[in-house]
Amino acid sequence: MSAGGSGAAAEAIPQNKIIAFGVLGGIIGIYAAYFLVDMVGQYMSFIGALGAICGIIWGAAAVRRVASYGLGTGVPSIGILALGMGILAATFGLSVGGVAGPIIALITAALFGLLIGVLANKILKMGIPIMEIAMTEIATAGTITIIGLAIAMTGTFDFAIVLKQVISTGYIAVIFIAGGLAILHPFNANLGPDEKQDRTLIVALEKGALAMVVAGIVASINEGASGSLTILIGLALWYIGFSGYYERVKRDAYVVVGSGQLPTKEELE
């Protein structure tokens, strides 16, 4: 049970596995997209978005864990914080790191997240036992999301190109909102006494797929990346996510009934 504010959330999949899934999936996705776009062709840029989805699912799982203690501010704030920290770390890592950029960005994000977690518990006295680790996870997941979606848009994480095609054009705002929503929305939509981990995470997949479709649309006007495959795979993943969510809603609900059509004016009289 994890109504906001009731303590630790029950988990069917242990968090360690999700962390491994998010970090490894994210890094593999980012680097595979980077190298395969060069070696195979532009259309491989969609792998970056798959990496971002791994990060999104991890981020949503971490938000779920920390927000179930009750933040007092609503869940969206933590998603915004994730992307706020992520955007600082990602821009820093990519601009100084070259090929090692994503790794530097992830390490920076982890340290920065840890700092925010320590500040929250030690100075603000929030008293959430997992705040430090959760903030570390959320910042890192946000960074993976931003870099992954940026690669899906441009086909590379070379900072000169990312700066020109993602940041200066303003698509970074799209990444910010689409990625932030994908991390904060799953728990926000599902929280309550009957919240279940798999139902929350499948929403993360669905929202991540939507972000992937948006990244694909942006990629279609950029030279280094190809959008059609990203959009198609994104739509397929969205369908899997949405139907999976609907199935779990039906599973968890006491009963699902149709309300029928609204009565017409004549019927009301």
């Binding site: 704030s77 706020g84 600082l88 821009t91």
Partner: peptide
């Protein structure tokens, strides 16, 4: 981008 990132971090900290 940096200004927005810094702004968001600094608006969440006081809200906690």
């Amino acid at each position: 981008v940096f200004a927005v990132g810094i702004f968001f971090v600094n608006s969440v900290i006081p809200s906690y």
